[in-house]
Design a protein around this nucleic acid. Sequence first.
RNA 1: GGCCCCGUAGUUCAAUGGAUAGAACGGCCCUCUCCUAAAGGGCAGAUAUGGGUUCGAUUCCCGUCGGGGCUACCA
Length: 584
Amino acid sequence: MTIPSLLSQQLLGALKQALGEQLPADFMPAVTPSQDLRFGDYQSNAAMMLAKQARCNPRALATQVVDLLGETEMATAEIAGPGFINFRIKPAYYAERMTALLSDERLGVALTDKPKTLVIDFSAPNVAKPMHVGHIRSTIIGDVLGRLARFLGHKVITDNHIGDWGTQFGMILWGWKNLLDKDELEKDPIEALLAVYKTVNAKCKEDESLLPVCKAELVKLQSGDEENLAIWKQCIAVTKTGLEKIYNQLGISFDYWLGESAYNDALAPLVDDLLAKGIARESEGAVCVFSDGFHKPQDDPFLVQKDGEWAPVPAIIRKADGGFLYATTDLATLDYRTQNFNADAIWYVVGAPQEKHFKQIFDIERMRGVTGDFRHVAFGSILGKDRRPFKTRSGDTVSLQDVIDEAVTRAAKVIEEKSSDMPAEEKALVAQQVGIGAIKFAELSQNRMSDYIFDWDKMLALTGDTAPYLQNSYVRVRSIFRKIEGAFQAPDTLTITEPAEIHLARLINRYGEVVPSTLDDCRPNLLAAYLYELAKAFHSFYEACPVLKSEGKMRETRLALCELTARVLKQGMGLFGINMPDRM
RNA sequence: GGCCCCGUAGUUCAAUGGAUAGAACGGCCCUCUCCUAAAGGGCAGAUAUGGGUUCGAUUCCCGUCGGGGCUACCA
């Protein structure tokens, strides 16, 4: 059990005594880490909240509660300000918990008591288009949510819902037959396909007669033409190979690659079913789902205000020409996941602009009586220097492979400067770990909802609040352990006294609180901030408290602090899919 | 027009309604005969604007200004 939950229980007991009947039945006092260490380790504002309801003086209530709490083995409570109850944890208590952590593989992170079957839908690039920086957010955040959920005991299914059935195939098919450079296809398949697509796209703009020809190719594909199907399959195959290459470099993998095309056969019956149930109806030739009036107009994803009136914005699930859309596929995909995977939670890691789309999808499920923890884990846009979103349609953005290459190159350069004597093979490996780590950490340390401006130097920075900073603290620990004789022996007791030791102990003990809360709100930046703080505390400790030169209990304690710091850093960064090198 | 997101140091980002708003980069000043200086210690510097709710507001509510997104047959 974490320290704040223990404190919360103690506090509840004291509040019950103090307030008796006046305490609300299901009240659980919040105990949170203090923002400023001058106010102790943890604080609660429960007295201020309750005093209002009970109509008493908050400071008086807090004083009464603090008297009841008294001093425990764990902490001393004190009152401050308008009625804060501050808890100061005793170093000996931290020490005691740490000896337990030394033999705990989970380092204090409890398994969830409500395991879910969770499908995470992320990355989802399009076939025949290379991944660009815009795919970074979904890919990295989705992967991390999967790792976190698994670690916490959920059954996780990751699914790459690739765009393999879009209208772009009309142009690609025509281009494949008329323009494709077979040599280029050998060398860099995705680039070759992209080039074809771009060329055809340009040609269509010049020559209006071409577009219908491309559309005809698409229709042929969709009606099962063998030649076109064969080409289409090849496009998917080469794209997948290219994508795998990038995912491998990033250390990311998927349980399934169920693209849009996997749901083709389900679309027509789905629309028929929605029509039969009266959830969808025809309008202007298309089949649409309209508002059922469940929500207030301003919260209704099927309504928009126009000229002072609420006008319908239906979800179209079948076009007037009979074609199906994004929404149709997503509904069919959701059905598949709930039925075949028995998913009770489905999280979509998709950009914020699609918020309305998902609100509609989830609302249609509500109308159909399908329930579950369906979430749109949205994130902000990556902007160009002009503060406008990168244009993905025109294709002139930075490719993900270029970002990776540049990151590794930059890391390699620093390694060459700092550790020129390292074997070449290790240099290459460390450059990979540092470079990729830098990219991932730059993404994960940001609030996922914020837009950010793409900047090479920021994304690939190797100093400051970055992965290499954390990796370096790990490296420093490993370096210490290389210098002691024999393996690390966990001592039975620890004695922490120095401020730097206490602070490090405080943060190590907090790991078990941070990991679950990071998943609760799908906010990797909480864990990133914690890990950075831990690394920072370690670097300070490292400067202030010599380990190898100390003796006896002090040395044992410091070695244990080093060991636990390293374990937390390694495991925490592992949850981010970032590797920690032993040397750098 | 309506709905959603956003506006914090020179720059890029943090902050479940909490106390003196944190970092990083950049700038200035210190620390390597000492476990990896990819480090540590210090200085300067910010909540767009006007109201409201609250013991307390960067956070919640209303208005103004500014940026972005969405707003029926693309994904």
